[in-house]
């Protein structure tokens, strides 16, 4: 299959529909932060990562740590679509006994590489995984997605400093820079300042792109692999929280963990079709 713009756009819409639907089944969830990372996850899982749905624990596979663990439902939609588990399971999201909890859980969900949810920690775990891959010399690439609000955690910068010190060129990270956090706009709560300059000064190979432009994401990942010069990579994604569904985008700061009715689900699905 040709992985062109039309393919990615169709696939991302499909993933957004699955995401809205499974959160909609329950009536509440992290819609904003899920929808903002769908495009990067789509590019990674359909065009970049070496993973096998039939063998989720395959040695030497590429790994993804969704450090902003509350975006779990977006990842679950992709994993289900790829066949890591049946799509019907998506409707069990967040129900007691489910394998699909709000925040990513590697013990429960086939294809989830790291348990996340306590912000900042997953990113350090990704650094540990990248070191592990270096020790084993298995040539895997480790991907990590952090939030902009999450970047206020001190642990992010501990990990940033150390990944650069260790020259972890097998680590490619993304910041989902949607500019909103639970209590308000990131710039008003605790400004990130010049984020690209921060990562550059920490010794990372930094790129900044439109986080909803699939081909730009693909190109940035390829560049991160080719041009890193022994550095870990940070790709800052300018994104829109709630991307793809007008009323969710418009809810702005209120879309972090928002209720959604069945009528709203229908409106969203129509817009995404």
């Amino acid at each position: 299959m040709i992985k062109d713009r039309a393919f990615f756009e169709a696939k991302s819409s499909e993933i957004r529909r699955l995401t809205v639907q499974c959160i909609g089944d329950l009536g509440v969830g992290h819609l904003g932060g899920c929808l903002s990372v769908v495009d990067v996850l789509t590019v990674l899982y359909y065009a970049v990562m070496n993973v096998d749905p039939k063998n989720p624990h395959m040695e030497g596979r590429d790994r993804l740590v969704l450090s902003k663990g509350h975006a779990g439902p977006a990842l679950y939609s992709i994993l289900a679509d790829k066949g890591f588990f049946p799509k019907e399971e998506l409707s069990t999201l967040n129900r007691a006994g489910t394998n699909l909890p709000s925040h990513c859980d590697m013990l429960r969900t086939p294809g989830v590489d790291m348990t996340t949810g306590a912000l900042g920690q997953g990113f350090s775990c990704a650094v540990g995984i990248a070191i592990g891959s270096k020790i084993k010399k298995d040539n895997a690439t480790i991907y990590a997605v952090i939030g902009d609000g999450e970047s206020q955690e001190g642990q992010i910068w501990e990990a940033a400093m150390y990944a650069s010190h260790r020259k972890l060129d097998n680590l490619i990270a993304f910041t989902d820079y949607n500019r909103l956090q639970i209590d308000g706009p990131t710039a008003e709560i605790n400004s990130l300042g010049d984020l690209a300059a921060k990562w550059t000064s920490f010794g990372w190979f930094v790129q900044r792109i439109d986080g909803h432009d699939h081909l730009a994401i693909l190109e940035a990942v390829q560049k991160a692999k080719a041009d890193n010069q022994g550095r870990p990579s940070m790709i800052i994604l300018d994104t829109v929280k709630g991307k793809g569904v007008s009323f969710i985008e418009e809810a702005g700061v209120n879309n972090h963990n928002m209720p959604i009715t069945q009528e709203q689900v229908q409106i969203a699905l129509e817009e995404l079709s």
Binding site: Q121, C125, V127, I129
Partner: peptide, 9 residues
């Protein structure tokens, strides 16, 4: 957390 990542490996 790095240790946890290594353990997962």
């Amino acid at each position: 957390s790095i240790a946890a990542g290594l353990a997962s490996y």
